[in-house]
């Protein structure tokens, strides 16, 4: 263990692919025990960053540390503490799900020591069958992967990431291809894993999912980290109160000068004291349908911080 420093830390990380700056000076910090939501549009550099973290792609400049150890130099020492799902699952179609995991587990030796779960064949078998059960594939473990559905493959990919009970999970779109129940199951699984101490980096475009799960987010736009903050801070009350009323005109007249915006029967009022505002409206005989402090959704936060794509600009 390397103390309580950040699990992932990058400094001025840059990656060029030819003339393209796919990653342009990123300082990413993921702390122990977090569920970190990694957001960004297609082509914003999320996957490249994840590949850089895992040593698959080599940085043009900048530094990466996992568990306080420099990557990719220490890859052999730290990557066994990491489980990852990068750009979709992959497996050998002609082999069964269980055999795939057995081979994957056997392909790299675990370091000796407590918590490693043992190196023997029996330990491996137990590990694999546990991982298959956790993702709900226990019953189809012996079936060839080529006969798996998209959702089953996704589950197999998650099982592969969980195989060694990693301290850090790096998951790229983990709920891709899953049905609503599957999505719920994965979400519960992640919450449960996080509760038992697993740090999770979750990259996703599903803002609602990130909003529900993550404690902190990092937002990428065109290779730059434009935002990195606690979800609670980002979604904190904005200092305005939302009022929905059928008597919008009367309310507007009553609160003249303090109404920030008005759209139909929805007013945004410059006050943090929702209770006093409510009392005042009711005292004036104005009917109130809804009233409460305004919070921005993650979608609004993201939209405010990223530049809109130009027509024809899919990715850089």
């Amino acid at each position: 263990m390397t103390g309580s420093g950040p699990v992932i830390a990058t400094r001025a990380l840059v990656k060029h692919f030819g003339p393209v700056r796919a990653v342009d000076g990123i300082d990413l910090t993921v702390r122990r025990g977090e569920i970190y939501g990694f957001l960004g549009a297609n082509g914003s550099g999320k996957t490249t960053t994840v590949r850089l973290l895992l040593g698959l792609v080599l940085a043009t400049s900048g530094e990466i540390e996992l568990f306080g150890r420099a990557m990719p130099r220490s890859a052999g020492d730290v990557l066994h503490r990491v489980g990852a799902l990068v750009e979709g699952p992959a497996a050998y179609g002609h082999l069964s799900g269980t055999t795939n995991l057995m081979l994957l587990d056997a392909s790299a030796r675990l370091p000796a020591g407590p918590g490693s779960g043992g190196r023997g064949r029996a330990a491996r078998r137990a590990r694999v069958s546990e991982a298959m059960d956790v993702v709900g594939l226990g019953a189809v473990g012996r079936r060839r992967v080529s006969a798996y559905s998209l959702g089953m493959r996704q589950r197999l990919g998650i099982a592969a990431a969980l195989l060694r009970q990693p301290e850090l999970l790096v998951l790229d779109e983990p709920t891709n291809g899953l049905d609503p129940q599957g999505i719920r199951e994965v979400r519960q699984l992640l919450v449960e894993l996080n509760r038992t101490g697993t740090t999770i980096l979750l990259s996703s475009h599903l803002l609602a999912e990130v909003e529900q799960l993550c404690t902190r987010i990092g937002l990428l736009d065109r290779g730059r980290l434009v935002l990195q903050d606690e979800v609670a801070t980002l979604r904190a009350p904005t200092g305005r109160t939302l009022v929905v009323t059928p008597d919008a005109d009367a309310a507007h007249a009553l609160l003249d000068g303090r109404v920030a915006t008005r759209a139909g029967d929805r007013l945004l009022v410059e006050t943090t004291d929702a209770a006093a505002l409510n009392a005042r409206l009711v005292a004036a005989g104005i009917r109130v349908v809804e009233l409460g402090p305004e919070r921005r959704t993650l979608e609004e936060v993201v939209a405010a911080r990223t530049r809109e794509r130009q027509a024809g600009e899919v990715a850089r």
Partner: peptide
């Protein structure tokens, strides 16, 4: 097949 990335991050040198 995409399995190369999963082998390398297992990690297999």
């Amino acid at each position: 097949a995409g399995t190369l990335r999963y082998l390398l991050i297992r990690p297999v040198g």
